[in-house]
Amino acid sequence: MATKAVCVLKGDGPVQGIINFEQKESNGPVKVWGSIKGLTEGLHGFHVHEFGDNTAGCTSAGPHFNPLSRKHGGPKDEERHVGDLGNVTADKDGVADVSIEDSVISLSGDHCIIGRTLVVHEKADDLGKGGNEESTKTGNAGSRLACGVIGIAQ
């Protein structure tokens, strides 16, 4: 089992970053940390998408990683996509320092995120509470600013 993974985020604009993942036990939580720069100040949706395909930019990554066919939600919700990591918060300089621990994603097994795409979005994720159909699919997080395929790390 891989215990570490990394993702280099890039987009068409100024947004870029490096996100690290570490899972010490196969059924334990995954620590997610790193930094994203070039964002507007505020909240930005942060999700693992189904495919590791960036051939047409971030759009070819498909929908959120959702092997259990659930509705979109927040990272602490029972009803959520596996890939729903909530929001990252950018400061006035456009930098989001990421520090998350998640017990639904994994670096092995059915919820493995390796080979899938991590995406940072234009807007805040409403965590499935926006009151419309799009909220239950995407959290109304808007366009995909930057993305990268999650790969095994040393």
Score class of each variant (00 low, 15 high):
110 D>K: 09
106 S>E: 15
140 N>Q: 08
80 R>G: 00
136 T>F: 09
107 L>W: 00
144 R>G: 02
14 P>K: 05
129 K>H: 07
61 A>F: 02
42 G>Y: 03
133 E>R: 09
27 N>P: 14
72 H>D: 00
86 G>K: 01
133 E>P: 07
70 R>A: 10
111 H>N: 14
74 G>W: 09
9 L>C: 13
138 T>L: 02
23 Q>C: 12
62 G>P: 00
145 L>H: 07
112 C>R: 13
31 K>T: 13
76 K>A: 14
62 G>S: 00
39 L>H: 04
96 A>F: 04
59 T>L: 13
103 S>Q: 06
149 V>Y: 03
121 H>I: 00
142 G>C: 11
144 R>L: 03
34 G>P: 02
145 L>G: 05
152 I>M: 07
38 G>E: 07
15 V>L: 12
133 E>H: 14
141 A>W: 00
108 S>T: 12
99 S>D: 10
127 L>H: 05
107 L>P: 01
29 P>T: 06
12 D>T: 12
127 L>I: 06
118 L>E: 01
62 G>L: 02
99 S>F: 15
59 T>G: 06
141 A>S: 06
24 K>D: 15
38 G>P: 08
56 A>M: 10
45 G>Y: 02
125 D>I: 00
38 G>Y: 10
16 Q>F: 13
129 K>D: 10
8 V>W: 08
17 G>F: 08
40 T>W: 08
96 A>Y: 03
4 K>S: 07
107 L>K: 04
35 S>K: 14
34 G>E: 04
50 E>V: 14
120 V>R: 02
88 V>A: 15
91 D>N: 08
100 I>T: 13
18 I>N: 09
127 L>S: 07
153 A>G: 15
19 I>V: 12
137 K>C: 08
30 V>A: 08
85 L>H: 02
103 S>P: 11
115 G>I: 02
128 G>D: 03
130 G>M: 05
76 K>Q: 15
106 S>I: 06
29 P>V: 13
5 A>N: 07
128 G>M: 03
2 A>I: 07
20 N>G: 09
42 G>W: 08
65 F>I: 03
93 D>Y: 14
108 S>C: 09
88 V>Y: 06
76 K>G: 13
97 D>E: 11
130 G>Q: 07
70 R>P: 03
116 R>W: 00
32 V>D: 02
71 K>N: 14
142 G>Y: 05
97 D>W: 10
123 K>H: 10
4 K>A: 08
44 H>L: 04
121 H>N: 00
123 K>Y: 08
36 I>E: 02
90 A>V: 10
145 L>R: 07
102 D>I: 11
118 L>R: 01
133 E>T: 07
26 S>F: 06
142 G>M: 06
16 Q>H: 08
13 G>I: 07
69 S>G: 14
76 K>N: 07
93 D>S: 13
134 E>T: 14
134 E>S: 06
40 T>Y: 11
5 A>E: 03
132 N>M: 12
51 F>G: 03
25 E>Y: 04
117 T>L: 02
114 I>H: 06
26 S>Y: 15
15 V>C: 13
20 N>C: 06
36 I>S: 04
63 P>F: 05
81 H>L: 00
146 A>K: 03
135 S>I: 03
94 G>H: 11
32 V>S: 11
145 L>F: 04
68 L>Y: 14
8 V>S: 06
144 R>Q: 01
149 V>D: 04
100 I>D: 11
147 C>D: 01
133 E>I: 10
114 I>V: 11
9 L>W: 13
58 C>M: 03
135 S>A: 08
68 L>H: 04
132 N>T: 11
140 N>W: 04
133 E>Q: 12
35 S>L: 14
29 P>M: 15
90 A>C: 08
85 L>M: 15
16 Q>N: 07
